[in-house]
Design a protein around this nucleic acid. Sequence first.
DNA 1: GGCACCAATTCCTTT
DNA 2: AATTGGTGCC
Length: 743
Amino acid sequence: MDLSILNDVQRKAVEVVDGPILVVAGAGSGKTRVLTHRIANLIENHDIFPSGIMAITFTNKAANEMKTRIGSLIGPVTSQMWVGTFHSICVRILRRDADRIGYTSDFVIYDTQDQKALLKACYKELNIDDKQTPLKTSQFKISAAKNDMLTPELYDMQNASDYREKGFIKLYYLYQAKLKQNQAMDFDDLMLKTIELFKQNQDVLSYYQNKFKYIHVDEYQDTNRAQYTLIQYLAAKNRNLFVVGDADQSIYKWRGADIRNIREFEEDFPGAQIFKLEQNYRSKKNILDLANSVIVNNPNRRDKSLWTDQDSGEKIGYFRGYDEKDEAKFVIERIRTFIREKEYKLSDFAILYRTNAQSRSFEDQLMLNAMAYKVIGGLKFYERKEIKDLLAYMKLVVNPNDDVSFIRVINEPKRSIGGKTIEKIQAFQSKTELSLLESIPHLSQIEGIGAKAQKGLVEFYELIMGLKAKLDTAFVSQIYDELLEKLNIISLYELERSIEADARIDNIYEFKTVIEEFEKRSESPNLRDFLAETSLRSDQDNIEEQEDGVLLMTLHASKGLEFPVVFLVGLEDNLFPSFRAMDDPEELEEERRLCYVGITRAEERLFVTHARNRNQYGRFEPRHPSPFLREMDQSILENLSDQNEMPSFDPPKPKKENYFSKNALKSKQSFFGKASGTQGNTTPVASASQSATYFAGAKVNHKVFGMGLVISVGADGEMLTIAFDSCGIKKIHSGLAPIRRVD
DNA sequence: GGCACCAATTCCTTT
DNA sequence: AATTGGTGCC
């Protein structure tokens, strides 16, 4: 292994073996390299067994990459190492000893949707009105409490004197009780229950404390209180804790991440060694300068600044469009130009936005141009109805206590079992210790269930039990196949003869592929582990390397990734920063960090864009530029907007020579070229709803004069000089004359 | 119980 | 704009 490729600070950080270590790693400063070399160094030069090493990463994808990279440094010794996310590592620990805290190792993991369904049941039992207290509010409150490690009991103690909390406390108790009844844990429980396990069972804790001699945590700035505590427990004995993070990239406060965890590392671990990585290897200087110009506006920030010895690179492209469609057209046109003129492939480009909903206009344009793309996040594959249904069946096969899954699929496909029937079973259930599924054999004791419903219930029971019998002998894919066959689900969707149904069928087959891949990769492919893995899959885990396509994702999802060309879009007030952040300075700082993260994803080129109007909630509304645009160093921005679209914030008015520089002119031409439709195969129809902007080269139709070509636009952007086919050149007012654009 | 139609709500970010 | 949930009728 060659440590000479590291810079001085990196090497020093890598070579320390024992004790607590904090690596403050700015964006693109090679923290993954430090982590992998550190671990490789432990194993190769200090005879540490891989089985004594734990590394916690932010995504499973990062975990796999880390294993691969360590493997390529010192060979395939990594299989004994524990590398994974907080959630997956907790599952692994819990599977072993769940019985110590009143769970079986067959527990299932409830995602956000399941959580909601369970809360709904709690609401019903407690007569809570979901109009008065939206499910989301309770969901959020429970999660926040758990992130702060407040169990119902602790929360109760802390808030007992507050009568307004009475209702919530009751709900929280019931929710937690129901989770246990269902043998289920939500995402936050995975950490809390692991901590509980450690707290109550000294022997278990000692086992792991002794086992893991060296613990590593990546993205330490985004750990929450529970995760922090978990680490404290695990590292308490050996104190060999190596954490890497960057306070400037903390973007998960809303999920409970506590920036203090990294800021106060020295106090938590006296004698900790601290290394600061400030040389950036990722981005051109202009990109880095832009990032710095934004992040310095955060008042509560420890001063540090990244530097690079790379050249400046191109300026940062700035574009303001008429609306989101205009914005998308610009971005896609740029990508086309890049690919035509340079050696870029589609997957070199990333479009980063604040909210998932923004992907749409870009998808439309990409589709129009027949360009491959991949949207990361949004409606996840595993959240699609047909997949969730099949997952619910499989969860029930593993865990018959899972009432949430039972209710989800008992009438899917239709078995003539509705709310009334379920209520009757629940009434029976409350007198017993049985789950809904387990109640079915006792149907004779339940009054008033119709023959049709009874038949449906029994068939359902037999289906699940039939599959359960095969659990230990059959492959997951065999169970899946049998499930599909027994449910006759494909034929049912085929009968619908709709595009949506066809897509569902595709997804069902796709899911089969996912299962088969799991079986190939896993050492002991069982259904339990498969279900856990699908529940804990992150968006980034779904990025496939081999497929070429433009990447679209939220800024959050882009964390830890890098791309040659980045488009940071939708830089508008109330969108980015989010409207929720406007009145809260702390949240505004977090939005700014998010902006910083976005900028620093770019290696070679960066473009920042926004629109003057945007469709939202079906309404077309004017938008204002984001304050972050104003903060950006204007001298490194290059305005690529239509002349009519000069920015209204202190304009990044390019110096004359810039404006007419070869680059600016070239890009301008391509932009106009596209809009006026002179490029033949670009945007064929597209503009049925023509945008109201006019510019030189635009084709217009006048009610009286007929077709014409805009020659120039007045300084006010409204007086147009138009050459009409019928009557020559005329000056008319775009706001008053009966004209419209024809694309 | 199932289905069709209407109304309300949503678009902040996620394991 | 689009999805989701609710209501009322069959």
